[in-house]
């Protein structure tokens, strides 16, 4: 029956990222003896936790039918302002707490600004976030005159570089946030509404859903995850480069979401898939490094993987 065949196709699509990860994992393990070393695996997880965390929020934006290009610039701004606050507040423990709150607040506010512009004026999210991407970066450069935000607190470093139960703290934050957001997406009214809005804005509106508010929320969530990443990355180096931090984060975040099986057209996707997508990207990077592929070529590989993922998605849609 066509039903069961269709059912199987749906199941297959859901497990595609997992299958891809398994295949990639086996190939990597076979081609390099260092790949399976615990230290290497932990490093991969740490590497992916920064953009992976942003990708969690990006999943909501993309499922809701939008896109956010400003995440990298916003991460730099939130991370930089956090360090300014820490230094101004005396670099003690309470100053660090204040700095963290600043990063989360700036990130959330930046995301909310995107959400406000997109929903209030009904503008294309691509254009809005392209604009704020430029604004956030420019402000980050301006505040420090294109220099580096250096933290005066050595304790701040403990967040990004520290470990807890054998895992780096950013990895815990990434996985914890992923679990939380997966529950939000699948088990709360808000998550259900995001899926409905992304699937059909009109149906959602006619179903008495406050479409603008839901969309606004997706950008705010993304802003919050950007704030988390800003703390994780800024504290790891205990400094934020105004020109370099967060460059191409939007690329990696969107790539993780797409590889994780979320539809670029909106309306379907999972947070779990995004986690897998981020890890897949991390393993690819890791393997390219170990095989000695020029770092300049790694972007090519990443680009090909994204195109492949979208192509598979597109063909899947067409078959329906």
């Amino acid at each position: 029956m066509t039903w069961s065949i269709r059912g199987r196709q749906v199941e297959y699509a859901r497990f595609a990222p997992l299958i891809a990860l398994a295949v990639l994992f086996i190939i990597s393990a076979l081609s390099s003896p260092y790949f399976l070393k615990l230290q290497n695996l932990l490093n991969i997880l740490r590497q992916v936790s920064y953009t992976g965390t942003i990708a969690l929020g990006m999943t909501f934006v993309i499922i809701g039918g939008g896109i956010d290009l400003s995440v990298g610039s916003l991460a730099a701004m939130a991370g930089g302002l956090a360090i300014l606050v820490i230094n101004a507040a005396g670099a003690g423990a309470d100053a660090i707490a204040l700095g963290i709150v600043t990063a989360l607040a700036v990130g959330t506010a930046g995301g909310a600004l995107n959400g406000f512009l997109v929903t209030r004026f009904n503008m294309a999210p691509f254009v809005v976030t392209l604009g704020t991407m430029s604004i956030f970066r420019s402000l980050t450069l301006y505040f420090i005159n294109a220099g580096e935000y250096r933290s005066a607190s050595d304790a701040y470093r403990a967040i990004g570089a520290g470990k807890f139960l054998g895992l780096f703290i950013p990895v815990w934050l990434f996985l914890g946030l992923a679990a939380l957001l997966q529950v939000v997406l699948t088990r709360t009214r808000y998550g259900r509404y995001v899926l409905a809005v992304g699937s059909s804005e009109q149906v959602a509106r006619y179903s008495a859903i406050k479409v603008r508010l839901i969309r606004f929320g997706t950008y705010s969530i993304t802003g919050f995850t950007v704030g988390v990443t800003a703390v994780m990355f800024g504290s790891r180096l205990n400094a934020v480069s105004s020109s370099n931090m967060g460059l191409y984060y939007e690329m990696d975040a969107i790539a993780a979401v797409v590889i994780g099986g979320t539809s670029m057209a909106g309306g379907a996707g999972t947070v779990l898939g995004t986690v897998l997508g981020a890890i897949i990207l991390g393993i690819i990077n890791n393997m390219l490094n170990m095989m000695g592929v020029s770092p300049y070529l790694q972007g090519t590989v990443k680009g090909l993987v994204i195109i492949l993922a979208v192509l598979l998605q597109y063909r899947g849609n067409r078959n329906n």
């Binding site: 899926l195 409905a196 699937s199 059909s200 009109q202 149906v203 959602a204 509106r205 006619y206 309306g267 379907a268």
Partner: peptide, 15 residues
Amino acid sequence: YLSEDRQGRGVVLDF
């Protein structure tokens, strides 16, 4: 209110 546009305004086809 059930709209005349069942697919465009009524049901979420992906759900």
